[in-house]
Design a protein around this nucleic acid. Structure first.
Lengths: 136, 136
DNA sequence: GCGCTTCATGACAACGATTCTCATTCGGGA
DNA sequence: TCCCGAATGAGAATCGTTGTCATGAAGCGC
């Protein structure tokens, strides 16, 4: 039903640059941050293009998106293609990928218990990473 | 640090009206929806006031807030004061409160494992409720 | 290599949710 | 009842994000 995504996606300089800007980062960053960081590197790409590509990549599962507390969308390219979650540092933004069969099963069970089907879930954990905690 | 919230909150007609509008609803609703639903009932309250009160109530834990996929904040007054999560119907918005020691423990454990402290977490489950699923 | 057709891009306007500003109103204690 | 400060309301201002549309670059058949 929602298959056939990456049908015809044309490889462009901009798309590559965005993917490039995303690799090697362990923090989640907003479209705007990515845009200006690219601008800082001398790569001129339109803001709208950044948004479009980021969304497309997210739809294809190439990158992960989560929402910050104030509703801003932040992106990051993840190491695994598999379903996973994140533990994010509130202070420095460091994000660690984690998997947890326990949660997956719990979510399924709880949903089923209430008669829900076609279940999806969101699980994000945030706190202070060891480094930031020590720095206080 | 973030204590001492409900210090001095003055009870006003508007505040009561908003609380009123929230009770007896099992769906999460946006500030705008609440505002216009109140307007429909003949209760005139400024939109800014709705936002302010909703935020204050959320800060006091009187209501729960979650973000929809497109980043909009939606509110609902919950039955329990205790920490809990929700299973939300994507189709009709029905929201059921659930608790899960399993998740809480998992979150703590996973975070600790990576050296994180002062951990908080977000867990939301969405799917189709039995009724909506049958209706298809 | 040469056009052509089509999709992607970029600049900027438009939008929608939320927040801010500031004059006015109202609640509550003196 | 009077006064002070908190709460409100109207509308402007913000800010992230999306839409518009003319221009530019890819892919493809020749």
């Amino acid at each position: 039903m929602t298959e056939q995504t990456q049908a015809a996606r044309r490889p462009t300089r901009q798309r590559a640059a965005i993917a490039q800007a995303l690799t090697g980062t362990v923090e989640f960053r907003s479209a705007q941050e990515i845009h200006s960081s690219m601008a800082g590197d001398g790569t001129r790409v339109g803001l709208a293009t950044v948004y479009r590509n980021l969304q497309a990549m997210a739809a294809d599962g190439e990158v992960d998106v989560i929402r910050t507390a104030d509703g801003e969308a932040v992106y990051r390219s993840c190491a695994t293609d598999d379903h996973h979650h994140h533990v994010v540092c509130r202070s420095c933004g460091l994000a660690v990928e984690v998997t947890g069969d326990a949660v997956e099963r719990w979510a399924e069970a709880v949903a089923a218990e209430h008669g829900f089907t076609q279940v999806r879930h969101t699980v994000e954990i945030d706190g202070l990473c060891a480094e930031c905690a020590a720095r206080r």
